[in-house]
Write a protein that binds this DNA or RNA. Structure first.
Lengths: 171, 171
DNA sequence: GATCAATATGTGCGCAGCGCACATATTTGG
DNA sequence: CCAAATATGTGCGCTGCGCACATATTGATC
């Protein structure tokens, strides 16, 4: 019989394997690690995102985010443009940045499908339904959602299961 | 309807959330990041493990592993003892190392269960069975197994689903 | 048994990624 | 109009890691 903690351990092991593959592929595509790949994906969700918004989504310090953007700019993946508010910087993906982002997302999906496709279509559907339910019932703040979805493929994830507004306080 | 890639995306998002929580807890427990927590867990599987074996399991460079062990030693979590073979070093957890490892494993399991317990016992069992099947059908080398299981809780994972010997070549 | 390749470890050096503390510019609120 | 809040940039240092090189021990070959 499988215990509750035994199942937790299996999910943790699977998650580690999944992230190992995703991070490996991401480093091959953009040549950088840490939160840099996630930043590239997040910035593609909406052009002109602010430095500070990016910081909150990635869960980094302020200076860490500035330097991360520095790297993206020096790699010519991102442009800093003046924001509406005179203090803000509007971050925009360059053409090259958009292309890298697309590659990155494709690499990520293929990393997971290669693990997933040992299951039959029926099993896969069942797994998908359970994961969707698991995510849907989490108590996530607005910012938590962005953080969890910071590497999600918006061309693929049509209706995100994560709840939109719950009791948890934002930060 | 849920597409194959849509499910892959959900699994990737969940995996990211799971690893975020695990890594956050691990850093709180041992005060270090990267592969250091995994090293501590791996070293607990069998006392006297070699530096080089650890390196292969963690997927690090040789020097990176030496420095990682340096940190563990300076934190008084690990001892370097002479190995059977005069070249080798036998890595042993100190009492403190064993205690930290136990904390680490508990923190990891609780991080996952807190995500998991929104599911009913029946749903959880179904999810566990699917993940177990997914892992069991992977084509993993001996070393892949150790790598995937490098953070696993051996007090909880009684029968690992990962296949023992497959065609894939070791390294 | 001497020599050379293979194996295992340690070290000098540098880089990537990140946080803390501080400085600066703009906006907002009283 | 001025102080607090907001948003960004910088100096500095640390952690985690890889590359290239050095060293020590073992195994293989003659």
């Amino acid at each position: 019989m499988e215990t509750e903690t035994g199942i937790a351990n299996l999910l943790a092991a699977l998650s580690l394997a999944v992230m190992d593959r995703i991070e490996h592929g991401a480093r091959e595509v953009v040549g950088r690690g840490g939160e840099t790949p996630a930043a590239l994906i997040v910035l593609g969700y909406g052009q002109g995102m602010t430095n500070d918004m990016l910081r909150r989504i990635l869960g980094l310090s302020h200076s860490g985010t500035v330097r991360l953007v520095d790297r993206l700019v020096s790699d010519q993946l991102v442009e800093r443009r003046p924001g509406k508010d005179g203090r803000e910087v509007a971050l925009h993906l360059t053409a090259r940045g958009t292309a890298s982002r697309k590659e990155l997302l494709a690499s990520r999906i293929s990393a997971v499908t290669s693990l997933l496709d040992v299951l039959s279509p029926t099993e896969t559907k069942r797994l998908g339904a359970l994961i969707r339910e698991l995510l849907a019932r989490q108590d996530t703040s607005e910012m938590d959602r962005f953080t969890i979805c910071r590497m999600c493929d918006d061309t693929v994830c049509t209706n995100c299961p994560l709840p939109t507004s719950k009791k948890k306080r934002d930060r």
